[in-house]
Amino acid sequence: MRPADRAAARSAAQLRGGAPCRIARTARLLALAALLWVLAPGAAWAQLPDLADLSAQYMPGAALEDPRPTRAQVTSYEASVNVPLPVGEKTFLIPGAMYHVEAVSYADALPGFDQLRAFHSVDVSVLFVQLLPRDWSLSLRVAPGLAGDFEGFDGGLARISALGLVTHTLSEQLVLGGGALASFSFGTFLPLPAAYVDWTPTPYLRLEAFLPGFATAKLLFSDRVELGLRADLAGNAYAVRDARVAGAWPCAAQPADDPATEPDERVARPERCVDHIAYSVATAGVTLGVRAFGTVWLTAQAGHTLFRRFEPMNADDDGIPGEGQSIPDVLFFRAGATWRIPKS
């Protein structure tokens, strides 16, 4: 196999190493949890989500295990918007949309290494919220979408996710909830239980968690400043349709074989062809929120990653042996702006 072909075959994953495919599927569940929470019900503000949110996250470059000495740096951007539509006094229908992109840049890349630079996801959603008697509420949400490098489009990019959540307001200080998440993508159905808690023991402290997505503790200062700690689990899976990958061995048979290598490159090997990749990350850090005007908040978070991993998958949604890689943990910085729904 020629060096350029080897690089093309594996650069979609930008990695090498071993890991079970359940890690990649867990990444999709984590992405699902983060995605659904954008429009999932909160304890306050009549169970309605934020009206709009913009954010950017920067992680400095880190060395890849293979090919060395290549370094990859990831910057993420995300935008979401939701439009609450009252259907009745206690019934709401909220259409929404979200766009997310992972932008990758490289340093010290070797010749022949295909630099796949962007992975996108677009989701549109409908959230139904029904406020029930005795301080109960029901939320149902469905969100179809697309995820991939957007170098080509086919049915493999499509995905759909759903959420069902019931919450109960036990007091003005405590709300508990539970339900389930589910997604279908790349031919695999993934269910997951979900739990929610929102506890404000004092007017100056709020503890909130949506598991398995995030947990946060905030100090509140006169409805103007929020300072706290936050931990997140997130991830996504992206279809790879770049011609440099699809046209290289093992995805496509080559006209000639390199006698210096063991595999016969004249025969494609679909089980080793990268159809999509999964990326998962865990982070923890300090958060700061400042109300700029009205219900518009500016936010910032600085911290450290606790876990990062790429995992390439074939068209059967099976992990490709020897092609996974854990990425070194790094510091990160996230900034954003959120338009919250008014309390009244």
Rank of each mutant, 00 (worst) to 15 (best):
R117P: 00
A4D: 14
A34K: 06
W339Q: 02
T338H: 00
S161H: 15
D149M: 00
G156A: 14
T188P: 02
V104I: 11
D154G: 14
R334H: 04
G285Q: 03
R206C: 06
R241F: 00
L227C: 04
D316E: 10
E89A: 13
F221E: 11
V296F: 00
P342T: 04
A147I: 01
T169M: 09
E271L: 06
A43F: 03
E151Y: 01
I160H: 06
L51E: 09
S344V: 07
R230F: 08
L174E: 00
L165I: 03
T91S: 04
D53K: 08
W37A: 05
G178Q: 01
P203M: 13
A282P: 09
F92C: 00
V101A: 07
Y58H: 15
G322C: 10
A12E: 10
L288E: 01
P67G: 11
A182W: 07
V83D: 02
R340C: 06
L229M: 14
W37K: 08
W37E: 15
R309S: 04
L229G: 13
L110G: 11
S161F: 07
G247P: 00
G17M: 01
I160S: 06
A103V: 12
W199E: 12
V290K: 12
W45V: 06
V281C: 08
H120Q: 04
G96T: 00
A24H: 10
K218W: 15
L219F: 14
G187Q: 05
D114P: 03
D329E: 11
R117Y: 02
L306V: 02
W297Q: 06
S105I: 06
E172Y: 05
L140E: 08
K218R: 14
A118C: 02
P41K: 03
V267I: 12
D50V: 08
Q301I: 04
S161R: 15
E208Y: 08
M313I: 07
G42K: 03
L36N: 14
A118Y: 04
D108P: 05
A33F: 05
Y204P: 05
R159M: 12
D154S: 14
G42C: 04
L165K: 02
F210H: 09
D198P: 06
L220M: 07
L227H: 05
L48Q: 07
G336E: 01
D316V: 04
V74E: 12
I23F: 14
G88V: 05
M59G: 09
R340Y: 02
W37D: 14
P203A: 12
P60S: 11
P321I: 09
T70P: 10
V81G: 12
V290N: 11
S171T: 09
R134N: 07
A12P: 11
R291N: 13
N314H: 03
E271I: 03
A24V: 08
T287G: 02
V197E: 00
D66V: 12
V281L: 09
V126R: 04
A300C: 06
A44F: 05
R224L: 14
V330A: 09
R244H: 04
T299G: 05
A107M: 12
A43D: 07
S125G: 06
G156L: 10
Q73K: 11
V129Y: 02
A46F: 07
R25E: 13
G247V: 01
A24D: 13
R6F: 04
R22L: 14
P95Q: 05
E311M: 03
A278Y: 06
L132F: 02
V225T: 10
S121T: 13
L233A: 15
T283W: 01
P67L: 10
L207K: 11
V126N: 05
T202G: 07
H304T: 10
Y279G: 02
E262Y: 13
